[in-house]
């Protein structure tokens, strides 16, 4: 067992702030998959998701002093990754007149990583993964963030509230409206 594995996230970041690079590596090991999954659902591209998460960890490396113990480490790192993902989406929107919001089911650009495809699960599920991914991408940004953090990353209302910086009641309302909107979009996609 790795020596660093016994520490909490907050203890690890404290160790890294004192210069222990093993603590940094442990934090990367713990969070890289979670963050890649989170950002991938945001930007719909694995390559871009990995790039953003690497930039998140680079920020952790260069700005670890910015972390204060008042917040949980997970909240802090999710906030950085979320902000980078939003910035990237806005940049992409500006660059492309044809945005991912306009894509349909048959668009090949909408990437579903091959290692996640499971025909058996797809047949059991009410919706195809690609449909879900397109529907998520069409959600307004604040609903998208709430839905991904709650229904995909399975974070608590309180944690989402701290990441997004709004009261828990607002988070709940965004989740409620986000799910309804998602359902409408999925019905629309099915009817086409």
């Amino acid at each position: 067992m790795r020596e660093t594995a016994k520490y909490t996230d907050e203890e690890l970041i404290a160790l890294f702030q004192k210069g222990d690079e093993r603590a940094y590596l442990e934090l990367v090991r713990r969070y890289k998959d979670r963050l890649v999954n989170f950002v991938f659902r945001f930007v719909s591209s694995r390559e871009m998701a990995e790039d953003i998460v690497q930039d998140t960890f680079l920020k952790l490396y260069t700005s670890s002093h910015m972390y204060k113990e008042i917040a949980r480490f997970s909240t802090w790192i999710y906030t950085i990754a979320g902000n980078l993902a939003k910035t990237e989406l806005r940049k992409r929107k500006r660059r492309k007149i044809y945005s991912i919001h306009d894509m349909g089911i048959d668009d090949k650009e909408f990437e579903i990583p091959s290692d996640t495809y499971n025909p058996e699960r797809e047949s059991r599920s009410a919706y195809q993964e690609k449909e879900i991914q397109i529907a998520i991408s069409r959600l307004p940004e604040q609903f998208k963030t709430a839905i991904i953090l709650r229904d995909i990353q399975e974070l608590s209302y309180e944690e989402i509230s701290k990441i997004v910086g709004v009261p828990a009641g607002t988070v709940k309302s965004r989740i409620n409206r986000g799910r309804q909107k998602l359902q409408e979009i999925l019905k629309e996609l099915k009817s086409k």
Binding site: V28, K32, R41, E50, T116, Y117, R121, I152
Partner: peptide, 28 residues
């Protein structure tokens, strides 16, 4: 709604590729 939430919960998890750490090390 329950079917939708279940589908979201059960979406396959996308994980970092094998080259992730090497590229991060290069960036640093």
């Amino acid at each position: 709604m329950s079917a939708l939430v279940d589908t979201l919960h059960n979406l396959p998890k996308v994980s970092a590729s094998d080259s992730f750490d090497a590229i991060l090390t290069d960036k640093i």
